[in-house]
Amino acid sequence: MDERVEPYVMVTVVRRVRPSSATVGDKAIVTANGEMKGFVGGHCTRELIINQAQECLRTGEKRLVLVSPQPPVKVEEGVTVLSMTCASEGTVELFLEPKHIDPLLIIVGDSPIAHALKDMAPRFAFVPRRIALEEAGSSSLEDTLEILRNQLAAFNYTTAYGVVATMGLYDGEALLALSRWPMRYLGLVTSPKRWKTVRSGLEVAGAPKELIDFVTAPAGLDIGAVGAQEVALSILAQIVERRRRDLNAQWEGLPEVKSSKSDSVSANDDRATVSQKVVDPVCGMTVDLEKTQFRFELDGTTYGFCCSGCRNRFAKDPESFLSHA
């Protein structure tokens, strides 16, 4: 089972009372899809334990379960007691131990902090996958994430942890792209002042309030970190804390919205008709409209920007910039 890299629960019979059909030491595994392999009791026990096992996978916690037709009046601490619906099957006590694959940590960016996170993550039992538009062969972050999804298709990653460390290059775009994934944690490497700007940009882009509130910004515990390695350590410490203490906090992911092929062709055609070189209306920098990831459509005109900060400022109040153009 470990070779297949799938999470499962190991179930072991630790005590039994006749006429239970199980014996001490019997084992079974329960997969994430509710399939039991092995024997730890009859049909009634089986159904009860499958439900408990799936709960263990959800929480990551071990569990001692007592199944009996006559539950004790006094229940010992740490024991989950379930009523046996088939009285003839006796009493059985089982130990449930979830076996998880290391969780996925998606890191966006080509910054020193992004590289430090990738290097350090395996030491804390995370599987790091770093992506960056600067290095990707695809034209957008969404395309890059789709490639990542395909690469991870053989693994049972139902949730992930995410950190955006682009250092202001495409913070908002990265957060929105990662919001397609179910997330246990979504952090942004930024300053409190810049987070206000990114937050405003997300609001303008129509991001749900639940997503914006879920983002941890600035990412990392306040340990007075200096340099990329220490900042990465502070972020990993915060992720470990979330993983161990706040198991119910999770972003379920935005629904996938995929444009049709005709829409994609139309969008590409539109971009082909505009000038390649345009002036960022916010900062005055010349940018290549075909290559920049930061665009804004207004009244049929496509404006290009050097970074997400300029685009967000423009989106918030276009007229203030166009009136001085």
Rank of each mutant, 00 (worst) to 15 (best):
M1C: 10
D2W: 14
E3N: 12
E3I: 14
V5P: 08
V5M: 15
P7Y: 07
P7M: 09
V9Q: 07
T12L: 03
V13R: 06
V13A: 08
R16H: 11
S20F: 03
S20A: 12
S21F: 11
S21Y: 03
V24F: 05
A28G: 02
G34R: 13
G34E: 08
G41W: 10
H43S: 11
C44L: 04
T45I: 00
E47D: 15
N51L: 15
Q54S: 10
Q54A: 03
R58T: 13
E61M: 12
K62E: 13
L64K: 14
V65W: 11
V65I: 09
S68C: 03
Q70F: 10
Q70P: 05
Q70Y: 01
P71S: 10
K74Q: 14
K74E: 14
V75E: 14
V79G: 06
V81E: 01
T85A: 12
A87L: 05
A87Y: 06
S88R: 04
V92S: 09
L94W: 08
L94V: 15
K118Y: 07
D119M: 06
A125W: 13
R129I: 11
R130P: 01
E135A: 10
S140N: 03
S140Y: 00
D143P: 06
D143I: 05
L145N: 10
E146R: 08
L148K: 07
L148F: 03
L148Y: 02
A153F: 07
Y161V: 09
G162M: 12
V163R: 13
T166L: 09
G168R: 08
Y170A: 03
Y170V: 03
A174I: 09
R180N: 15
P182D: 04
P182I: 13
L186G: 08
W195G: 00
V198K: 03
R199P: 05
G201K: 00
V204M: 12
G206Q: 04
A207H: 12
A207V: 11
F214H: 00
A219P: 04
G220C: 11
V226I: 14
Q229D: 14
S234L: 13
I235T: 00
A237Y: 02
R244P: 02
L247W: 02
Q250W: 00
E252A: 14
E252S: 14
E256Q: 15
V257Y: 09
V257C: 12
V257K: 15
K258S: 10
S259F: 06
K261S: 08
D263C: 09
D263M: 13
V265I: 14
A267C: 00
K277G: 00
V278E: 08
V279D: 05
D280E: 01
G284N: 04
T286R: 05
V287A: 07
T292P: 05
E297Y: 07
L298Q: 07
D299Y: 06
T301E: 08
F305Q: 09
C306L: 01
S308N: 09
G309H: 04
S323R: 15
A325Q: 08
